[in-house]
Computed example of a mutant assay.
Amino acid sequence: MKPWISIYFLLLLASCTGYQPVLISREKIFTENTAGFRQCHASTLTETKDGNILCSWFGGDHEGAPSVKIWLSGWNHQSWSVPEAVADGKVSGNTTYPTWNPVLYTLPKTDSVLLFYKAGPNPRAWSGWLNTSADNGKTWSEAQGLKGLIGPVKNRPLMLRNGDLVSPSSKEFTEKDWKVHLEWSTDHGKTWKIIPVNYNQKDVQVIQPSIIEYRNGTLQLLARSQQNKVMTSFSYDHGRQWTLWKETSLANPNSGTDAIRLKNNWLLIVYNPEISGKNWWEGRTKLNVAISKDGQQWKDVLVLENGKDGDEYSYPSVIQASDGTIHVSYTWNRKNIVHAVIQ
Score class of each variant (00 low, 15 high):
residue 99 T to Y: 02
residue 81 S to C: 11
residue 92 S to P: 00
residue 118 K to T: 07
residue 109 K to Q: 15
residue 92 S to I: 06
residue 105 Y to E: 02
residue 111 D to N: 15
residue 89 G to Y: 06
residue 107 L to H: 10
residue 96 T to H: 12
residue 115 L to R: 05
residue 93 G to C: 07
residue 106 T to E: 10
residue 111 D to G: 09
residue 94 N to C: 00
residue 84 E to A: 14
residue 122 N to V: 04
residue 92 S to M: 13
residue 91 V to R: 06
residue 86 V to C: 05
residue 93 G to V: 05
residue 115 L to F: 12
residue 87 A to Y: 02
residue 114 L to S: 01
residue 108 P to W: 10
residue 78 Q to V: 09
residue 114 L to Q: 08
residue 79 S to R: 15
residue 108 P to D: 12
residue 88 D to E: 05
residue 96 T to L: 12
residue 123 P to G: 10
residue 117 Y to F: 14
residue 107 L to E: 13
residue 115 L to Y: 09
residue 105 Y to V: 04
residue 86 V to W: 00
residue 87 A to L: 07
residue 118 K to Y: 08
residue 81 S to N: 12
residue 84 E to L: 14
residue 104 L to D: 04
residue 83 P to E: 06
residue 88 D to P: 05
residue 122 N to I: 00
residue 105 Y to D: 03
residue 100 W to R: 03
residue 81 S to W: 12
residue 98 P to A: 07
residue 109 K to H: 15
residue 92 S to N: 14
residue 106 T to Q: 15
residue 111 D to V: 00
residue 99 T to N: 03
residue 112 S to K: 15
residue 117 Y to I: 00
residue 82 V to I: 14
residue 114 L to R: 06
residue 90 K to W: 14
residue 81 S to V: 10
residue 104 L to G: 11
residue 113 V to M: 09
residue 119 A to H: 09
residue 123 P to V: 11
residue 79 S to N: 14
residue 83 P to F: 11
residue 101 N to A: 08
residue 101 N to D: 11
residue 120 G to L: 01
residue 80 W to P: 07
residue 84 E to G: 10
residue 113 V to T: 13
residue 123 P to F: 09
residue 81 S to D: 13
residue 106 T to G: 11
residue 108 P to R: 10
residue 78 Q to D: 13
residue 116 F to T: 01
residue 113 V to N: 09
residue 92 S to W: 13
residue 89 G to Q: 03
residue 117 Y to D: 00
residue 98 P to K: 01
residue 92 S to Q: 14
residue 86 V to I: 15
residue 87 A to R: 09
residue 90 K to S: 14
residue 91 V to G: 00
residue 112 S to T: 15
residue 97 Y to K: 02
residue 117 Y to G: 00
residue 113 V to G: 12
residue 104 L to W: 05
residue 122 N to W: 02
residue 123 P to M: 08
residue 120 G to F: 00
residue 100 W to F: 13
residue 108 P to H: 11
residue 110 T to A: 11
residue 100 W to L: 02
residue 81 S to P: 11
residue 89 G to T: 07
residue 88 D to C: 10
residue 85 A to D: 06
residue 103 V to D: 01
residue 95 T to K: 12
residue 82 V to T: 15
